[in-house]
Amino acid sequence: MELEDLIQEFSQSRYNDLSIEKGDQSIYLRRGATKIIQNNSCVDSPSDNKTNEQSDSVDLSQGDFLKSDRVGIFSSTIKSGDKVNKGDKVGLITAINVPHDLIADQSGIVKSVIVESGAGVAYGMELIELDVENV
């Protein structure tokens, strides 16, 4: 079944959650998941003269931040003080009801999770601050 068909079927069904695993692929759908927008919104306000530096960088691995590689709803699977290794899953970004793993592209100790779970995030946005010195 095509992904769009699946989403349509799901949206018309009476279920709130749907999880499918097949081989190495998995899909998780949750009703209403993408409509959650919290105060620390995903959007840069253009009327705000301060440029949002979080979305400036083209190089996603630059600096001591783990950045969003897509647009969607963010949820963290780690917390301050956790040690992460390059390649670890550190969170999920859900787009069109499909969650995608956010993978650490560098190792370090989590200083802070900048974006609250449930908030929308833009491409390139800083999500997690790492201390990469003391690993």
Binding site: K35, C42, V71, G72, I96
Partner: peptide
């Protein structure tokens, strides 16, 4: 498409 549709969703 995925990022554009996701952008529509998170911005309402």
């Amino acid at each position: 498409m995925q990022n554009i549709v996701a952008a529509a969703e998170i911005s309402g």
